[in-house]
Write a protein that binds this DNA or RNA. Structure first.
Lengths: 210, 210
DNA sequence: TCATCTAATTAAACACTGTTCAATTAGATT
DNA sequence: AATCTAATTGAACAGTGTTTAATTAGATGA
């Protein structure tokens, strides 16, 4: 059988990606099998290889979806506008962690993924990640002591990588003091101390104790 | 052929783990194949399954080795004793990052690893990770404003998770502003601001600008 | 309407993978 | 020398990603 036209190419892509997402959500990237995906949408592996470059392509596209969902999860239900920048950052950090907790396999798939040797992270994916950092930059710009500074992108990435690190270790059970460690408190600690540190610097108080 | 006694069980284990390490170092965890390991040490997969529980067991034991090496890399060549705590933390952070850069696949194997569903991180591995955090706690204890505080373990994990996060994103090319972003400067920024924030708090300056 | 063309789809093959297990056999024990 | 035991093997099972030649449904042109 050939040229069934049961579905348009983009319909098949959509169906495939939905299934890939389902498999990753349930069992992580390791639980993803092209044959199973093909079965689920009632096509064969060959058709998938016609529409996607390879397994990695499938994963990458679902990862991009996940980043979009995450972005919405972070910005959604707004009400961020009338909060102080610190509090917005705090809320974003907690939401970042909560999303990771709610979709550990999808989140892990995004951030444990790395391109096969020689291949570059495709631009559409880079942009999606940059968009995330922009949320943080936006808030940092509002902190008077930093507005207009061209260090903002670096500060944003430093702060957010830290939030990311706490989330990453917590999710992989590598953080334990006792198992009731409150991760959200750690996020609060991080953001408050880091921003306090920044404000001190800008107020020219550099040589305080330690 | 059976009961060759060419090598003792622990010799075979040692040889196997050396090969596993070689494969992970070269091609990452995905490049690891039990059959290839067996071939390399001139035994068969069955023998490996006699000495190890399964593939995950192999990985876990090499990951533990890696953590030991990392620990040595961090503490080695001493000379840390006559530095200020901040500077020790700075040095440790940079070494952490540099080690990750020098052995990206081994480092990634440790921190992207998670146990199969239902299984717990074995104690010997937990302890190895705790030992890492203790290095940080040790320095934080020396910061006068914190000595004796029972929050030290949490502060240590917060700070170190942040260092970890920066390293993690940098290693997976998810940090880019421009590709010449200086990661070590970010680590410096993080640690300095975070510690500055802490000292401000302890000096009772809580409500400074922002 | 019918032959031709084209591109979507398939089945089959290739070279792998982790894991299990019955059969073998080298060396220790009696 | 016969028996026992446990280390080691080979073969089998049930998968995996990927490539390719063959098929064929539907569009195109005569």
């Amino acid at each position: 059988m050939a040229r069934r036209y049961d579905h348009s190419p983009s319909e098949i892509k959509e169906m495939a990606l939905n299934e890939v997402e389902r498999f990753i959500r349930a069992d992580g990237v390791e639980g993803l099998s092209i044959r199973k995906v093909a079965d689920a949408i009632r096509y064969t592996p060959g058709t998938l290889y016609h529409l996607f470059k390879n397994r990695n392509d499938l994963i990458l596209q679902v990862n991009n979806r996940t980043l979009q969902t995450l972005q919405q999860y972070l910005t959604g239900s707004e009400g961020l506008d009338d909060l102080a920048p610190v509090d917005v950052l705090l809320l974003l950090a907690k939401r970042y962690y909560r999303y990771a907790r709610s979709e550990p396999n999808l989140w892990t798939s995004v951030f444990n993924h790395s391109m096969p040797e020689g291949e570059e992270v495709p631009p559409f994916h880079q942009q999606q990640i940059d968009a995330l950092f922009e949320l943080i930059e936006e808030q940092l710009e509002k902190v008077t002591s930093l507005s207009g500074a061209n260090v903002v992108p670096i500060i944003a990435r430093t702060l957010w990588s830290s939030v990311h690190g706490i989330t990453h270790l917590a999710l992989n059970d590598k953080l334990f003091i006792e198992n009731n460690t409150d991760v959200e408190e750690m996020l609060e600690l991080l953001i408050k101390q880091f921003l306090k540190g920044l404000s001190v610097q800008s107020i020219e108080n550099s040589e305080t104790a330690i």
